[in-house]
Write a protein that binds this DNA or RNA. Structure first.
Lengths: 278, 278
DNA sequence: AATCACAAGATTGGATACCAATCAATGATT
DNA sequence: AATCATTGATTGGTATCCAATCTTGTGATT
């Protein structure tokens, strides 16, 4: 088994991806040490890993927080993602064999069935996974890791953002990309990938604030020993198991930089994280 | 100032880039703790950072070693590098203004002058730097960091490899890429980038072994307090300041997996790291 | 009442000492 | 000579302690 700091880092990453830990949330050493029942040092090592991954931000003598990417950084992440996926598309259009195309088609089909069945949660997961499968077919582990890191960071953005776009259009993009690529129409496929991401970004409107709906202890509870139902719960925060108090008043540990903090309606958070476009 | 583990990680990274710490070299916690005069914990945090960066490999209960990428991984790294630089090239051909092209040309010119002056060390550094400047012009910090990490990992390969190629051809590639891009001949520029990297990789022949010529303590000595002349010494090991014994007999701390270890001539190491193609 | 300064508390970054588990190398045994 | 067991060294991790810094709350002042 790998080191304990790695597993803790993985758990925190999972919680961030699942939007149970939201940007700006304070990750106190002592608090996490208690939650995971390890020493502070192991926690600090885990936080270093998160920070290296771009998911956390460590401020000297102030502690670690879930990263709060700026709008600028959001654009850069999506630009990088586009660049990587376009490059992989170019490689695949040359090198991919029939089995590869079949796998992609099969994945798209699975997602389509999930949508048809009204299983939005599964559809969202599959939608995310498509990009991962796509890059995996390049058979380049280095590239895979880079891409996976970028994808992880986009999940941060989805917490900061009010999605507002036509969900159905995006759903077909995956299928069309596969079609275009297999037909050798690389240029059009790359343009579609660009448009795909650009549509997502354009639908994004950075909110100024995000309020955590639970404390880290509550957020991390599902992962602790039960080996949590990770994949299925990644759709939203709604069906969370608060394991105790259900009062959503816990605004604890929010990190807000010195900005104009207009008392916006907290309801905006409710509308966030609806669809998870990919 | 940032955390101490970060500065130690930076120093180790610098030493690896400078080929003072070679792949397979053991990075013992206690040893490094003494060298840097810190506790083992700080060292371990630094090693975690190195491992996350792909420059070190931590084996449970065995310790950390400078990473020893396989031939497969080497190809993947260069593939990823090609993909990134081709993508950046595509972006620049659209978006780059006159000032940007001027900066690239100026950089190429500086390198040409260095070559003309016979200053191979400076030429090598500038050759590396060209790629960095190239990516920086994309104005995408996320992409820059990804690229920089890939470049760092290529320096590992140069320790493992006996360079054997036509050095002069590669020198002009940078200039030609700039020319092609500015003229809008994107496709050709991308092909040239591909060929550029492919030529480098083809010239590589993975050696089975690399023998460190000094202990970590010797390797790290130049960086310790004098704030070392980092940039200028990155050409090779030759003008190193061993700060003490000059006997190159110290084969200490080599990590060799269970492989057929033919007693090859140690002289191969001498021929390595001549030109640093980029 | 509002603001500023200061002191107390809390948190982080780090050091030290210590322990258990594991790997490696040595020596003992057959 | 080959194999097995023991010993030593190293790592992963804990607990405790300390200094520096940040936050907060209180109180004095205007």
């Amino acid at each position: 088994m790998s080191s304990r700091s790695q597993t803790i880092a993985d758990t925190l990453t999972r919680a961030i991806i699942d939007h149970r830990l939201v940007p700006g949330c304070k990750l106190g050493e002592r608090e996490l040490a208690e939650i995971f029942d390890v020493s502070r040092i192991v926690v600090r090592q885990a936080l270093i890993r998160l920070a290296d991954d771009g998911l956390a931000q460590i401020e000297r003598n102030r502690g670690a927080f879930v990263a709060r990417p700026s709008m600028q950084e959001a654009m850069e992440i999506y630009d990088a993602l586009t660049l990587v996926e376009q490059g992989v598309a170019a490689q695949l259009s040359d090198r991919l064999g029939p089995a590869g195309w079949a796998e992609l088609r099969q994945h798209v089909e699975r997602q389509r069935q999930a949508v048809a069945a009204g299983n939005d949660a599964l559809a969202d997961v599959l939608g995310q996974e498509f990009h991962t499968v796509f890059v995996r077919l390049s058979r380049n582990k280095v590239m895979q890791e880079i891409h996976a890191q970028l994808v992880r960071r986009t999940t941060l953005l989805r917490s900061l953002i009010t999605a507002d776009f036509d969900y159905c259009n995006l759903l077909d993009d995956h299928s069309r990309v596969v079609d275009l690529l297999e037909k050798g129409r690389l240029k059009q496929a790359m343009d579609l990938i660009d448009t795909h991401h650009r549509t997502v970004v354009r639908g994004y409107i950075m909110d100024r604030e995000v309020f955590p709906e639970m404390t880290p202890a509550e957020a991390l509870a599902p992962y602790l020993d039960g080996k949590a139902d990770a994949a299925t719960t990644s759709a939203g925060l709604r069906q969370a198991k608060p394991s105790g108090n259900g009062d959503g008043a816990a605004h604890a540990h929010v990190h807000l930089p010195n900005e104009d903090r207009a008392p916006t309606s907290r309801a905006s958070t409710k509308k966030t994280n609806r669809g998870l476009p990919t």
